[in-house]
Design a protein around this nucleic acid. Structure first.
Lengths: 147, 147
DNA sequence: AATCAAATCAGGAATAATTCCTGAAAGGGG
DNA sequence: CCCCTTTCAGGAATTATTCCTGATTTGATT
């Protein structure tokens, strides 16, 4: 039997690995949209026919608390989820609401400015760029000339 | 875009000035919290006893579309409102959820980075700093030493 | 493999947040 | 003042999210 296993260095709360949770995480990682809980459920209910919406909500919450996914507050108030927990930023189209990942780094200048203004340091900086995506910009200009 | 400004494209849709809308705007400007629609209603229903929640929602929406106030997507999904429509940024406490205004300017570098990464320009940049406010930082450290 | 306790599940009811609808009342121009 | 439009209150309807319950699954242990 196992020899001396003095101290399990894992204070991580023992969680069961379940099919539902695993698939939710996997699917989130495989999409680059930023779905709501409802969209996540709709996408998975086909292969897990009795996946319940409550289960989706509960597991998204668990995954967020484990730092495996990210919660992104979105315009209009709904919560969306992001399968990529590494810090990154977003371009949000004001026309169609699409959210695009932007893998750029926040300038160190920002942290300095915060410290100067408030004497606080930030554990995380989130930058949202608002504008029109290519498609919506085209629509807007054609609508303009049409009026 | 035509150079001749033949017709005023947006004659600023004539809006009635109503007591309810005026008070909602005035109250929002006078507070530095970032209240939800519900909180706004609760604060004003005392002096306007038959102000309805629906009216608050409708007027907040109107004020946002007029650019007089700002909609702030907040963690947890609720929409909050900000009486200061001038671009500014926020420090959000991860402990208590408080939202503090930060009147600092986004570095021009950010717009350049966006253009380089996506070829898009942003009509607006929103920066959220996440961390612990002074109070919550104290609580956290005392809790830590107590364990 | 059989057993057991804890975690998780599905499903639905309950709650919260927001929008929509209706008829009544108030603003504003003439 | 009169007419037309906008806004109003109130409540019903819709949507988003959380909570509850008893059944099922998981991982560990025999």
């Amino acid at each position: 039997m196992p020899a001396v296993k003095s101290a399990p260095p894992e204070p991580a709360p023992r969680r069961h690995q379940t099919r539902q949770r695993a698939r939710i995480l996997e699917w989130l990682r495989g999409t680059d949209s930023h779905p709501t809980a409802l969209l996540t459920h709709e996408a998975l209910v086909r292969e897990l026919p009795n996946l319940s919406l409550g289960t989706v909500y509960r597991n998204l919450e668990v995954l967020v608390s484990e730092g495996l996914i990210d919660e992104v507050p979105s315009a209009g108030g709904g919560v969306r989820y992001d399968g990529n927990p590494k810090p990154h930023h977003h371009f949000i189209c004001e026309g169609c609401g699409a959210i695009d990942d932007l893998h750029l780094q926040a300038p160190a200048e920002l942290a300095r400015k915060l410290r100067r203004a408030r004497g606080r340091s930030a554990r995380r900086i989130r930058i949202d760029f608002y504008g029109l995506c290519e498609t919506c910009e085209l629509h807007a200009s054609t609508a303009e000339t049409a009026s």
